[in-house]
Computed example of a mutant assay.
Amino acid sequence: MTLSAAPRISYEVMEPRADTARIFNIQRYSLNDGQGIRTVVFFKGCPHRCPWCANPESLSPKIETVRRESKCLRCVRCRQDADECPSGAWENIGRDVTLEQLERDVLKDDIFFRASGGGVTLSGGEVLMQAEFATQFLQRLRQLGIRTAIETAGDASFSRLLPLASACDEVLFDLKIMDAERAREVLNINQLRVLENFRQLLAAGIKVIPRLPLIPGFTLNDENVTQILAFLAPLAVQEIHLLPFHQYGEPKYHQLSKVWQMAGVTTPTEQDIAPLREKIEQAGYRVVMGG
C-alpha cells in the first residue's frame, strides 16, 4: 500500500482556554475503554494521520458541518445551516463545553460508574491537544471518587503528558508503528518520544496499559509485534490490549468528503490474529481483545 507522507500538524494548532474544550461526542455505557461501564468523552483535534482512523470527524480541531442524506427532506430552499435544518440532515460536528457543563453531563451516569467499578475515559482525536482542560476535568472527577482514564498515542512533551496521566487511574497507551522513520512518515508520530514517555510514566508509578492496533499492512505483522515485545520486556507491564482493524469508520469519510485510504482492506480474522496473540501470551502477558 502506497501512501503520501502525513502532513505536519502540531499540538499548537488548537490550544483553547483551560476552562473550555471542544468535544464531538459523549458515548455512554461503553465496555471497551477501561474497567467497568464507562462514559467516553471524545475530544476534537488530532495531530496524527493514521490511515485507519475510525473517527475522521476527530481530526480537525474546527467545528465541521455534515449532511446526512437519509434525513434530507429536499427543502425547496436549503440554507445548508445545521441550526435551521428542520430534519437534522445538516449537523454540526463539535461543540465547546466548560468544565461545569461537561461535569454535569458525565455525572448523569454516576450510578453506573459506582455499580460497575467504571468511570470516565477521555479519548479523541488526541486528548493531549487539550491537556490543560482535560487535566482539570479529571482532577475534579477524582475528587468526586470517579475512576478516570485516557486513551492516547503519548506523542507530546512529557511536561504536558505527566499532569494529565497523574489524574488517571489508568492510561490506555497506543503503540502503533514501531519503526521511527515509518511512524513519522505515515502517522506524523515521533515514535522515539512516544516510547520514552511510556517508560517515564511507568517510572512515575502510573498504571499504563499498552494497546496494539492490529492493522493489515502496517502493524499486523510479526516484526512489529516482536519490536513491541522487546520494548516492553524490561518494563513492569502485565497486560496488553489488542485492537483489530475494522471498517466501521468508512461511512463517516464519505459524509465528510474525505478519502478512506483503507477501502478494500479485509478485517483480520481470528486465524490472522492467533499467531500474534499466542506470541504475546507466550511472552507472559495477559491479552485483552478490544481493550
Rank of each mutant, 00 (worst) to 15 (best):
P210L: 00
L102C: 07
V127K: 01
A6M: 05
W52G: 02
Q238I: 05
A131C: 12
A230W: 10
Q139R: 13
P268M: 00
I206W: 04
E132G: 09
R147K: 13
Q136P: 03
Y253Q: 04
V186I: 09
G124Y: 02
L164R: 01
L73Q: 14
N221S: 11
L201I: 05
D83K: 15
K279Q: 11
K44Y: 03
R142I: 04
L202C: 09
L164V: 02
D96P: 08
P268C: 00
L59C: 06
T269C: 00
T39Q: 14
G34F: 13
E69K: 11
P234Q: 06
V287S: 05
T65H: 11
T39F: 13
P56S: 10
R95C: 14
L59P: 01
R8H: 12
R95K: 13
M262R: 00
L212A: 00
L202T: 00
L201E: 01
Q227R: 15
M289L: 10
M289D: 02
T266R: 13
F42Y: 04
R211A: 02
I111W: 14
L59G: 02
C53P: 04
G284N: 07
G125M: 04
G145D: 13
P56V: 07
S123F: 02
M178S: 04
V171A: 01
D174H: 10
S257A: 15
G118M: 03
Q238A: 14
I93E: 12
A54D: 10
V208F: 00
T267C: 12
N190W: 06
E15K: 11
S60Y: 02
A18C: 14
L232C: 07
R182K: 15
F137T: 06
R104M: 10
V106Q: 04
Y248T: 15
M289H: 03
L138H: 05
K44D: 02
R277V: 09
I146L: 08
I93P: 09
K62M: 04
M289T: 03
L138G: 03
V287F: 08
H48Q: 15
P47R: 10
L256P: 09
I63Y: 05
R28G: 13
M262L: 01
E185G: 07
L162M: 06
G264K: 01
L201D: 01
G34H: 14
I228E: 12
T39H: 11
P251D: 10
M178A: 07
E281H: 05
V288L: 12
E185T: 11
Q238S: 14
G94A: 10
R8D: 09
K252D: 03
L164D: 00
